[in-house]
């Protein structure tokens, strides 16, 4: 069994998604469901905290790409934080740092959403 968990919490005007475990072709649909739910609820400011994400394959990366456009069309964004070097390396191989803001710390990403409102 692949161990993967998603925890969702709402901050001030920002939704935080915490990922834990292994994000692969088996578990990617769970992340799709989570993003779709946020879009349905019109929650477009999303921070994905990857602190406990042990592994990601292209199936997981594809989910970020599939949903970010819908979110950006609605003046929101998906910002990524707290990645391990191993997980960052996979994002980096596919050029994600050019398309996504990646922060060391969740709070920095939350503050960035706040800056945009000013």
């Amino acid at each position: 069994m692949t161990d993967f968990k998603i925890h969702h919490r709402d901050g001030e005007g920002v939704s935080i998604i915490e990922l834990k475990g292994y994000l692969d072709a088996h578990t990617a649909p769970d992340l799709e469901t989570a993003f779709q739910k946020l879009i349905d609820e019109k929650k477009y400011n999303v921070v994905v905290n990857c602190r406990d994400l042990s592994y990601i394959s292209s199936a997981g990366l594809g989910v970020f790409m599939a949903y970010v456009e819908d979110i950006r069309k609605n003046m929101g964004d998906i910002k990524l934080t707290n990645m391990s070097a191993k997980v960052y390396n996979v994002f980096d191989l596919l050029g994600f740092p050019l398309l996504y803001e990646i922060f060391k710390d969740e709070q920095e990403a939350v503050l960035r959403f706040g800056e945009r409102k000013k």
Binding site: L61, E69, L98
Partner: peptide
């Protein structure tokens, strides 16, 4: 080779895995 900008917004994905395999 994948053009990430083309992939953005598409629910259907492909080609990323093969590209990664070649890089890895």
């Amino acid at each position: 080779p994948p053009d990430l900008k083309e992939h953005l917004g598409h629910k259907r994905r492909g080609g990323l895995g093969v590209y990664l395999m070649k890089r890895l």
